[in-house]
């Protein structure tokens, strides 16, 4: 009766690959991929046009490193945040709200395999977007500074990708927390674009505490690595008559930044996975 003999046991790693493959296919064909691509191309296009027309000194007078610092260094983080929110923000909550989880979950596959597979698919789609933006910046850089690609740009790209991994983990954790896709996407964007920045500012300026607990503080290494010299870890600037007030600003060193990003990657990935494992498909 049963065709059990004709079926092979599938391991969890293979299941991760299957989930990643079909989710990537779904991402790649979905409208949101092309919306994201359009946003990136608009940003790159505007930068190209503005730099070409106005030739701002910040871009063209500081050498190749200055050019990449002003272009890539300023916008890579925005691309990372938008990609993470677009592809990761509703990756898990969508399984509940759109009821696609009812098709996939009641099968002989662990939830962890689905989670990791979806995470890899979202990361792959986001990496393509980040890669296209990097190529656009590189093309501009080579136009203005032919034959000169600073090594720091490669480092910055690697850090941006690591930031993308961390942001994706955070977006997935939020996606696992909520059942509503819009809320989870919105929360990811608000948190990554605004809340962390506010925390960084308040922590440094008001409390005078290094915001070592903030993801965006750690991600500062993406642009800092393109500055020569590398910004000081702590800067105290006197303000007011006689220097009565001081403004303290912090910059993560590369090892600090890497550590912060790594901790976020691990903690948020585990948190999201635990939440997804425990979440119930209730109507």
């Amino acid at each position: 009766m049963s065709g059990e003999g004709s079926k092979a046991a599938v391991g969890s790693i293979a299941h991760v690959g299957i989930a990643a493959k079909y989710n990537f296919l779904n991402y790649f064909r979905a409208r949101r991929f092309y919306v994201m691509l359009t946003i990136i191309l608009i940003i790159a296009g505007l930068l190209t046009a503005l730099v070409g027309y106005y030739r701002p000194p910040g871009f063209v007078d500081g050498g190749a490193l200055g050019f990449y610092g002003a272009g890539w260094g300023s916008f890579a983080s925005i691309v990372v945040v938008l990609s993470a929110a677009f592809f990761g923000g509703d990756a898990i909550s969508g399984e509940f709200q759109n009821r696609t989880g009812y098709f996939l979950v009641p099968n002989p596959i662990r939830r962890s395999a689905i989670y990791v597979g979806k995470w890899l698919a979202a990361l792959a789609a986001s990496t393509i977007i980040l890669g296209i933006f990097a190529l656009a910046m590189l093309a501009n850089g080579l136009f203005y500074f032919p034959g000169s690609i600073p090594w720091e740009f490669a480092e910055s790209f690697a850090f941006a990708w690591l930031y993308l991994v961390a942001a994706m983990s955070l977006a997935f954790a939020f996606s696992s927390l909520f059942k509503n896709s819009s809320i989870s996407v919105l929360m990811s964007v608000i948190l990554l674009l605004f809340v962390f920045s506010v925390i960084d500012t308040v922590s440094s300026l008001v409390a005078g505490v290094e915001p070592w607990f903030s993801l965006t503080y750690g991600a500062g290494i993406v642009s800092n690595i393109l500055s020569v010299p590398y910004p000081a870890a702590k800067t105290v600037t006197p303000l007011g008559p006689g220097g009565r007030f001081t403004v303290v600003s912090y910059n993560a060193t590369v090892p600090e930044g890497l550590l912060i990003l790594s901790v976020y990657i691990v903690v948020m990935a585990v948190l999201g996975l635990v939440l997804f494992e425990r979440k119930e498909f209730t109507s």
């Binding site: 989710n23 779904n26 979905a30 696609t100 009812y102 098709f103």
Partner: peptide, 11 residues
């Protein structure tokens, strides 16, 4: 087949 599942729309 539980309730009425949805399938990834792009597939």
């Amino acid at each position: 087949l539980i309730e009425t599942p949805e399938i990834y729309p792009s597939l």
